[in-house]
Design a protein around this nucleic acid. Sequence first.
DNA 1: TTTGTTTGTTCGACCGCTGAACCAACATGC
DNA 2: GCATGTTGGTTCAGCGGTCGAACAAACAAA
Lengths: 417, 417
Amino acid sequence: MRAHNTALLLQAIWCEQGISRADLARRTGLSRATVSDIVGGFLLTGAVGEYEAAPSSGGRPPIRLRFENGWRHIIGVELGASHVSGVRTDLRGRVLASFQHPQDVAGNPTATLAAIDAGIRGLLAYDASVPVLGIGLGVPSPLPISSQGGLAHHLFPSWQGIQLATHLKLAHSVPVEVDNDANLGALAEHWWGAGRGFADLAYVKVATGVGAGILIRGRIYKGATGIAGEIGHTAIDPDGPRCRCGLSGCLEAMVGTAALLQRAREQLVSVQPLPEWARDELTVQSLIAAAHAGDATARLLITGAGQALGVAMANLLNLVNPGRIVLGGHLTEAGAMLLDPLRTALSERALWSSVEGSELVISPLGDQAVALGAATLLLQAALEDPQRLLPQQPRPAAPLVPFIHAGHPAPTFERSI
Amino acid sequence: MRAHNTALLLQAIWCEQGISRADLARRTGLSRATVSDIVGGFLLTGAVGEYEAAPSSGGRPPIRLRFENGWRHIIGVELGASHVSGVRTDLRGRVLASFQHPQDVAGNPTATLAAIDAGIRGLLAYDASVPVLGIGLGVPSPLPISSQGGLAHHLFPSWQGIQLATHLKLAHSVPVEVDNDANLGALAEHWWGAGRGFADLAYVKVATGVGAGILIRGRIYKGATGIAGEIGHTAIDPDGPRCRCGLSGCLEAMVGTAALLQRAREQLVSVQPLPEWARDELTVQSLIAAAHAGDATARLLITGAGQALGVAMANLLNLVNPGRIVLGGHLTEAGAMLLDPLRTALSERALWSSVEGSELVISPLGDQAVALGAATLLLQAALEDPQRLLPQQPRPAAPLVPFIHAGHPAPTFERSI
DNA sequence: TTTGTTTGTTCGACCGCTGAACCAACATGC
DNA sequence: GCATGTTGGTTCAGCGGTCGAACAAACAAA
């Protein structure tokens, strides 16, 4: 009960910067006495401070309480297909420091781990005076419950047996949380980006892999076995190219980075002379630049990708009905060239009431979304369980024994407290 | 706090028929004193009774507590496309009485309402000595939040302006809950059928309409605008027949009852002589019977439907990753003839890890699933908020004012208490 | 200066849970 | 039959936590 009210007040202070005790009491339904008591604890720890008084509305001026955003920091790390990056943020998702490092992730686990550790050490050293709440990590792989936190075998064969979370926890002595990159993108957009205010939302990341992160009631939804949101393997064209997952005509095999560049190369074979943009190594960025410059081949590839994405997202809209879909990944830099055919395909394939109730926007967080979401994982946990944030008193071990349904195999009740 | 513990104990007693106070204390983590106190209240109301003592395990024999399943009853009503039906159940989902009545629902709202009211009156009269908790109603229409509980205009134009819930509440003076039929099917399967033990599950109903009900963490998931689970409008064949929703090649336009029978008629035009089963009015049942009897045309239609369903369900698996998919509606009576091509399509179109982690089963509840789920809606509410179940003491009005995010547009926190 | 309003704190009261003690009802061993 | 041990349920004092009321603080308005 005390724990619950403590979390409630901390969240309220976090949300409403500069709220007074009296307003807190009104908003939470608690009495002013209780609010004063609990807030007093916050002031002692330093997590919350007192502003100057706000203007009076006819009586004693209220003392504005301030969540101390810089009281703790958080580290978020993104493991990409070809890079590792990381950020150090304050408790309001503001990036204070960051690193980015190209890296052959799938091929060289040892070097990758070294790069991550070096990056984290750098972020830790950035400001040793502020403790770090923990490290969040986003990985470009589904994380089935059965895999115990390891990367998927078929995508990262050489990573077999490596326990990322355990490694980071031991190496840096702070709490560590790991999740899928698209899930973290969704979380980041919900807290800091285009998803604010939408409890049910989806984030679709189009990069080397194509995946969706689904937020339901403001929380990452993982599904029964932990792999929900695998939009990348929606069947778009049964006669399409073979996908690395073993199926054919998957969305990822048509709009993923590798597939897109492969298609570009195939199309360019018959083009003579080879356009200038295609003489260097092909990248999604160069493809987009060429399309913006008017190159017909590049344009067609991107509008085609938009169409394919639209077909897959129509299913997402119909089935999950998110309040908003946020689109991330480098391909989104194509802008309207991608979005227009996408929206057309959407409106042709999804129920109008679903399309109407939803919005499709491009991620404002860009390529920091995943790392930011990784950090947010720890912020969310800390605000829901202030014990994580406030100075550690030894918690009484919860004596709760989980239900065992000996009799009627009963439905699931959510058990709070 | 007291309310929470009361609900916790009531749920535990409901789940574990015949549990003792001491076991309750161990299972819930509460003290035996508190358990005795709260259980005492249950005994006074009559919601819980005491069995004979159970065999001793060396000490004083425990008194087994029994949830009184027959203490209150619930009424669940299904509004179908061409019928209305209803059940009266006890608090363990056992059907005590039922009615079924053919009815042109879309065409004649007045007669339909009269039929529902008559059916409910019959169920109420079945046993006047046991109070009814309330009435649940399942409707064959999505219920967008914007529609305020009314049926969809484009499916039920003549129902415009009719407030079903309000009507039932006024007519029968009990609490009323309304939800989509597929959602209720999912709920029923979770509590009483093939979905027991699966917190994340989907129920797909193939009838006049085709819809999915999605349960997430044991609760009906409605999406941002209330229409999640619209699997019926997955695009299967862009060149396919036009659907009543305005799109083309929807699943519903290929495997819905009307579409299936229409296709049967088209195929039969070229068959001479007309097979015996096709001479009377076509129904899904007669089609299935013919297929089982070996008729090639009927067989092909059903396997085709299975394939189409498989394609759509592959998306469901990949995106939502339910622990189990339960299949309902009359078409399921085709059994393996439907399931085999469905499973084949699934394995060709869905990620293996998704298929592997999930099971596809046919609804054991059959055509009572929706009405049963409607009743379950009230049972679930009562077990989560025992105030609904126990004799009504005037509840103190909750003084909680909802958060208004005046400052930072913050993420959503779930607020319990 | 007076009056009224709003904020924040203090304090007694009360609600609800807990642990320990106690009684009740059995099994076991002699 | 009796003593002992064990387990179940109840009673009761104690305590953590919240609340309402009273009060002081700090302002605006008249």
